[in-house]
Design a protein around this nucleic acid. Sequence first.
DNA 1: GGCCGAGTTTGAAACCTTTCAACGAAGGGA
DNA 2: TCCCTTCGTTGAAAGGTTTCAAACTCGGCC
Lengths: 356, 356
Amino acid sequence: MAQPGTARGAGSRPGRARPRSVSVKDVAATAGVSIGTVSNVLNRPDRVAAGTRAKVEAAMTELGFVRNESARQLRAGRSSAVAYVMLDATNPFFTDVARGIELTAEKADLSVFICNSGNRPEREHAYLDRLEQQRVQGILITPIDPADPMLAEVAARGIPVVLVDRTSDVARHCSVAVDDVSGGELAARHLLELGHERIAFVGGPASLGQVRERLDGARRAVASAGLPQDRLTVLVSAELTVAEGRHAAQLLAGLPASQRPTGAVCANDMVALGLLQQCVTLGLRVPDDLAIVGYDDIDFAAAATVPLTSVRQPRLQLGETAADLLIDEASNPDHQHRQVVFTPELVVRGSTRRPA
Amino acid sequence: MAQPGTARGAGSRPGRARPRSVSVKDVAATAGVSIGTVSNVLNRPDRVAAGTRAKVEAAMTELGFVRNESARQLRAGRSSAVAYVMLDATNPFFTDVARGIELTAEKADLSVFICNSGNRPEREHAYLDRLEQQRVQGILITPIDPADPMLAEVAARGIPVVLVDRTSDVARHCSVAVDDVSGGELAARHLLELGHERIAFVGGPASLGQVRERLDGARRAVASAGLPQDRLTVLVSAELTVAEGRHAAQLLAGLPASQRPTGAVCANDMVALGLLQQCVTLGLRVPDDLAIVGYDDIDFAAAATVPLTSVRQPRLQLGETAADLLIDEASNPDHQHRQVVFTPELVVRGSTRRPA
DNA sequence: GGCCGAGTTTGAAACCTTTCAACGAAGGGA
DNA sequence: TCCCTTCGTTGAAAGGTTTCAAACTCGGCC
């Protein structure tokens, strides 16, 4: 079998030096055609005579030719990839968003680089740097801070940046998000419509925009049901974890039954699951003593001891739409930035029911 | 502010044509030095006189210069990135492995591309193709089929391939895995040592090597406890899901108490959680009526209604070691392939106890 | 004053692919 | 027979970076 670059001879080190990889030049030499023809076989096979094409293809297989993407990109001026910088790879929500992005990108014949900032700003910055150096077609990102000036700088240098699950007040990027106010409203209204008249909201910290908005939604639902706001008990948690949900259950169980809320809206499913589990442990029946609504509809929500009613966000669609916006921005000269907001949907399961 | 490539003038289309990005050439022109000097500022700043360096750096900032990674790679012959092709991005196990890989790669100043095959062979192949075209330094992969000839081909073309959480019978790649036999043994032995004498193994399908080995381990534990193998009831499930775990609970609950196992070893935590939840629903107490051991120690294991005893695999370390092996293979001419096998560890929680 | 060497800077080549104008050959029509 | 077309193929240039031998500058020394 022919070796690439035989002119080089045995190379410098006698050991296991990595052999230069096979290039179009090697293929052309083996097939007895010019470099241009090899390139045509790769990019416009219809312009090459059948016999020639066969010869070239045979040479490629024989030599084990693999296109050099760097050289292609250099010539093309940009890569055929986009990137998604995600906030937290261990959160199923974001992996589903990523899947949506991949689906759309695949259709447009783009690769997707998934990068995980893991909530660390320095890693986010390092990835943005690298991606810009790679000349990616565009960057999808769920940023740690949507107002980070670096995002604006990258965009200013001509690389499309789309915010995912976040909004930007300035219309400098496209963005795709889900309406958290209406999600919170949806959850609370469901309980109110079932006849619950005392409701708890469990979640925090208040510094999270998403938590604040979901709570606002719940308040709005209480108001439009014509009930006074003191019917909504707010239990602020330190974070959105199972442990904090359990803690909330302790607090609720400690209340006299006459004052205890009969329904709870949780800021996410982890909290809801903790609440649910601890209620079971403490002997509070779900949904009879306490109806529970979660948020996110993670897979575990449906699989809990009592299947959890939850607010579902269109995760896949979030990713798909974000990728669509990015592709438009990258390829359409008349692109206009858009802020897309999805409406969440309620999935009713066994954890909610008319109060006993 | 100076524009790159002013010679080009207003370009072809009047609209918002993407401007050519700034190159070393532009920087050199602005700073009034040669291209070589700019390159030296980037790569060997100590060889450049302080004044010159300052001029060049000023020009870079002024023009917004960003290195072109394609051109660097083309010159260097390979990229400064490695890739991890993971089997299932929605499984927390793999995202933790990925984190371990990132940790190690970061230290070696390598980027990591995370690719998700999602258990689909055609996507795995597409990613392998792309990665090879990118000339990555090496590929870490949890393959759908460790015997896939494509892995051998890639390796034969000189790209290091390391198998993660899988082993290869042929010593063609390095591999990193966890000893599933000893994990299964660990779980079963724990129950036996607590005094359980009838044990169930729940998991499947049998086509999964991991399931088979965990079962083998359980069998071994039963044997070394001096008990006959019929004390081990094997419930083969169709897949490793919560739903299948629930199903197993139905089967167990249907047995007369005298024959019913008092302890269960599950092939993973999802199955264990389903088993646990359905037991609670059916009124079987855990751990009093049935002690349960899971496998993987996912975060939800500790957060279940009854915290789950589980077999923990060193996920982070798995990734770190795999990356170390890859880096060695890519840079050390005397590299020898190695098959590293980790030993899992048992985490005891509330779901196991001495039988009533 | 001329020479040497250290410290800087330069210019050109190389990496591999794609593109495109131009060339050659073959076939058809006048 | 000659010209025109069409189809295939070629050769060279371009894209941005890195590397390296060569050139240059300056100070010091003989």
